[in-house]
Amino acid sequence: MLKVKNVTKFYGENKAVDNLSFEVKEGEIFGLLGANGAGKTTTFRMIMNLLEPSKGEITLNNKKIDYDVTDSIGFLTEERSLLLKLTVKELMLYYGTLKSMKKDEIITELRKWLKRFKIEDYENRKIKELSKGNKQKIQFISSIIHKPKLLILDEPFSGLDPINVDMFIDVINELKEKGTIIIFSSHQMNHVELFCEKLLILDHGKTIIEGNLKDIKSNYDERKILIKADVTKAELSKLDGVKEITIKGDEIEVKIDDKKYAKNIFEYISKCKNVTKFEVVELSLHEIFTKEVGGNYEK
């Protein structure tokens, strides 16, 4: 289990991370979210033992993270960390050996993953000659080649087409099944919703939302109602609790301040003609993120 306990990090006077605490168990995917400069990279660097926390403690399976422990951590950085002049094989031998792997083991694992990602011909190709998507595949392989106990994925789908995104998702889910602790970070909230049961949103170093994704969403009183019926925008705007109305094709999206207003709206719609859809949905993670962080974003 990864435990981040009351961690604070100062850069001079600036508090980059403020009293951060969370836990991630084996086989869990944890979403660590935040706008740019929220403190995510600093947190990752502290977990990777690149930075020492000013206060607090980080442990993996009750061991303080040191250079022995980092051998069992995989890190996919947001910006590509590949030595472009090397070939795929040379790079994996370099990174793999730094993770205390043996040469034969590295070659076997590399070939397995290259085949899995359908780039087995690229073993001796220079990294700089690869496409953006293939570079990302190589970076992903480099972070999982040593079968890490903890895997940090910072924007893993960057530069990938939908087919390759699905390929990555399958692998991430497999790793989860095998008990890998996964920390996932992305600005694409739909991706986060795909994986993360638990998440935490950072804003200027402070935790503003934390918990299970389901609970976070259901705890939000605000709702959206999707309607398909013979009803006008003007009619709907007169109803109690209606905050915003948007026409999306043949569908009307009505935002309400509180879920309690849904019943009255349903009663009104049920009297209209040609009602084919009435669905009350929770806010998406993207909407919650924008709502929570958006206001502070310019600070």
């Binding site: 033992n49 960390s81 730094l98």
Partner: peptide, 17 residues
């Protein structure tokens, strides 16, 4: 500079001091 500008440094320094 090569290791630093390609951000490989973060990977390397996370494995060796």
């Amino acid at each position: 500079n090569e290791e630093k500008s390609t951000r490989s440094m973060e990977i390397i320094i996370s494995n060796v001091s």
